[in-house]
Amino acid sequence: MSGHRRLDSLAALTDAELVDRARQGEQAAFESLFHRHQDRVYTIALGMLGNPEDSKDVVQETFLRAYRRLASLNGEQGVLAYLCKTASNASIDLLRKRKGARSVSIDDFDESLLAAWPGQRPDQAGDQLAMRRALETALASLSEEHRIVVVMHHIAGLPVDEIAAELRLPVGTVKSRLGRGREALRRKLPMFGDKEDA
């Protein structure tokens, strides 16, 4: 069976089944898991870091950690939740390192994020695409502290208390940043809001 056909046949399996096969040494099963979840992991990393190169490293690190922990990964929700949490943690680690190395102005950071964010995709059309593009731009223009909690909560699916623990912040601060981040998004998205609110 060719590699592509093999992956196609594995695509019908659940995460738990793929993990089980990967545990037994079937590398194609792990590759199938990778292709299934790489976009989510990459979106979390890019959303938090704003740098495609660092985001690729986070994807690699996340899946390597998952591979090493195959024995303890379980359940349908378990795999994606583990990947999202690991990607968030790896991104936070990288942000901390980066801040230790040099101070980054939020304005500079956001500018680089805007440049890094994927641009036009002429092959797709419709409102959904317009919404997605607008969301990309709006997310990229959020301040770092708001963007990180918005990405961790909505894209990584982490609950507020877990985000607070990872970021070493009080739960109330995370809630307030989340609320302000969403309100900022609403102001930045052209299709939403009474613009006189802003």
């Binding site: 590398q27 790489q38 976009d39 495609p52 690699q60 699916g157 998004l185 939403f192």
Partner: peptide, 26 residues
């Protein structure tokens, strides 16, 4: 609407990522 859109928001990862991961697998 913003919450729903964020929940579904995904960026397509570059296609060349898996070979690097495979090379690093124990």
């Amino acid at each position: 609407q913003i919450s729903l859109s964020l929940d579904d928001f995904l960026i397509t990862a570059p296609s060349e990522l898996y070979p690097n991961v495979r090379r690093s697998l124990p």
